[in-house]
Design a binder for these strands. Structure first.
Lengths: 243, 243
DNA sequence: ATTACTACTCACCGAGTAA
DNA sequence: TTTACTCGGTGAGTAGTAA
């Protein structure tokens, strides 16, 4: 979730991305092109020897195909190589084209509430929706985090502007329960969960409440006063079709 | 033209691009975010010390702004930094979204024609259009290049499918002169010019004819039999609005 | 807790050169 | 002509640590 290592190739991507981009610009994205190591060296501003090694490495990685003749080899980018370029492109698209940041980082301190969290989370009508829309059955309780700095409080307020996973309100015979907005989150870079924002919260915006399939105080060894880092992903949608 | 060093920062871009991308994904593209060197280190998979140096370097480059407090600095990407990301994005767009390659590379051998090139280039109605649409007054003569390999001939044939800078045909009292398709080109990675493709050419598709503001045989020290490299840019439009 | 210095290691780049 | 090897210098990344 945001951090999972799909990439056992981080280092390689960093090293070879711009060379691959150059080759693509020379036409190797769609066709075979004739490139000598000397020509490539010129284009990337490095030596012929380095260009040669780069091509060998790219070949070993399976990002290009190559057939060497005596006056410069024929090169074309493979599907694997194309997907490297596409991946960077789509990461940039998200950043440049969407107004919604891919994640927001919060820092705060754990504190104990009065158990209201637990009460609400265990209401069956809420619980059913958490399971359906978030994909997990929440531990019966919330982790309350007090935001300390100005900066965090401002960022928290911004969350209100982003599209959330919406949990509908309901009534029972005694009272009404308001709608809740959720955002997927990662706590201490380790445990998945969600930030829940009740529209009529008993807390002000310097507090965030977190639910999770795990008992977070146990899993992350937290006590009152522990510092936690919460990364919120406003872009990750709910499991089942939601706006 | 394709190769001009707008970038005195090639090396820096290669080195810092992915770090900048990471920071952007963490939200620094639009807002200030709180990032400790330790957190950044985690995200990029390198040590805290390296992350610290990266941030210092990015700051010196003017790609980020930074204010250090005692629990992690506040960081935001500057306009200069954003433009680095946008540049890579647009280079990728060109490759991924257009069917037209940004350049095609040809290799061949210089040979002498019978002077017809010179005759056509100096027709006033052609010359006027070259000046208007290509932005240069061509040397009165063409450089003929014989393509030797199968691969080059195929690539030459592909040019017919790409949108060219169109030079209109005309009539004088004696005869008609056909339309001509031009593509901007770089000869031996050094001299600007254009490849001209007459629709009714006296040559077959294993030859390309080049015009240039320069006397290329002189400028590039070419003789009959010299090998030349011609890079053709099918995407660079004419000076004045042309389809 | 932070940031960032110094010192050290190792990987990378390029000169020379063989094939 | 090419490609790509070896090898030596340089610069990038990390451990230790001060502030």
């Amino acid at each position: 979730m945001g951090n999972i290592k799909i990439h056992g190739l981080r280092k390689e991507k960093r090293k070879f991305f711009f060379v691959l981009l150059r080759l693509a610009e020379m036409g190797a994205y769609q066709r075979s092109i004739k490139v000598s190591t000397f020509l490539l060296a010129e284009k990337i501003g490095l030596s012929q020897q380095t260009a040669s090694r780069y091509l060998l490495d790219l070949q070993r990685l399976g990002w290009i195909e190559r057939s060497i003749t005596r006056n410069g080899g024929l090169i074309r980018i493979t599907e694997a190589g194309r997907s490297v370029l596409r991946e960077v492109f789509s990461r940039l698209s998200v950043i440049l084209e969407s107004k919604i940041p891919s994640s927001l980082m919060f820092e705060g301190v754990v504190f104990s509430g009065l158990g209201e969290g637990s009460y609400y989370v265990t209401r069956e009508a809420y619980r059913r929706q958490f399971i359906e829309k978030l994909g997990f059955d929440p531990y019966p309780g919330t982790l309350n985090v007090k935001l300390l700095s100005e900066h965090d409080v401002k960022a928290r307020a911004e969350l209100d502007n982003y599209p959330a996973i919406e949990i509908e309100g309901f009534k029972d015979k005694d009272r009404t329960y308001g709608p809740v907005r959720c955002f997927r989150a990662l706590i201490n870079n380790e445990a998945e969960g969600a930030v829940v924002c009740a529209l009529r919260s008993h807390y002000n915006s310097s507090v965030i409440e977190i639910i999770s399939p795990f008992y977070l105080r146990g899993k992350l060894k937290l006590n009152d006063g522990s510092r936690v880092r919460v990364e919120v992903f406003p872009n990750i949608p709910s499991k089942k079709g939601e706006t």
